[in-house]
């Protein structure tokens, strides 16, 4: 059981391969069902996230290769995924890869309040550490990222949006 958990936790995200599914907070539970099969529960990041099927296949394949032939993946939609579930190790790995990790997610009441001013975040450049950064776009290469530019070292970088 512990071994199955460790194997499942080692599978990496297809879009952010520096993060394991455990680090991303997508892996919610690893359990055995009545027949002794491994059942992994995952929670999608975004409703339209096209990486879900790949995550599921990667989990089943990795578990099978590790000797857990009967692995199944179950999706849990509730509670909804939040960037707060990204582990400290995951945040360090993102920074290391040049991606700025998310700050604390807004509380539900805050997140649905109309915000007509640009989103204010306390973001540091993942390359040089400067906090003098400018938002280039709220929308980046994937649904989960915004684009920033560092005014100190002039590098553009991705920031994982707080949700």
């Amino acid at each position: 059981m512990e071994q199955a958990r460790a194997v499942a936790a080692s599978v990496v995200d297809p879009e952010l391969p520096m993060l394991t599914l455990h680090d991303l907070g997508v892996l919610r539970e690893v359990a055995l069902d009545d027949d002794g099969a491994v059942v992994v529960a995952i929670t999608p990041t975004y409703s339209g996230c096209p990486a879900m099927a790949t995550m599921r296949d990667d989990l089943v394949r990795t578990l099978r290769d590790a000797g857990f032939g009967d692995a199944r993946v179950r999706v849990t939609l509730d509670p909804a995924w939040t960037t707060d579930w990204i582990t400290p190790e995951g945040r360090a790995a993102l920074t290391e890869a040049g991606i700025s990790p998310p700050g604390p997610a807004p509380r539900r009441e805050e997140s649905v309040t109309l915000q007509l001013a640009p989103t204010r975040r306390s973001v540091r450049c993942p390359r040089c550490g400067a906090d003098d950064v400018a938002l280039t776009s709220e929308f980046g290469s994937t649904a989960c990222k915004a684009m920033y530019r560092c005014r100190a070292c002039l590098e553009p970088f991705d920031h994982v949006k707080e949700i």
Binding site: Y46, S47, L77, P79, A80, S111, V112, L114, Q115, F139
Partner: peptide, 19 residues
């Protein structure tokens, strides 16, 4: 569950359009 998930997305769609 679809609603809980969708809320967060719709909030930034609306903010984007509002801005």
């Amino acid at each position: 569950a679809v609603a809980v998930k969708g809320l967060k997305e719709l909030a930034y769609h609306r903010d984007f359009a509002g801005r």
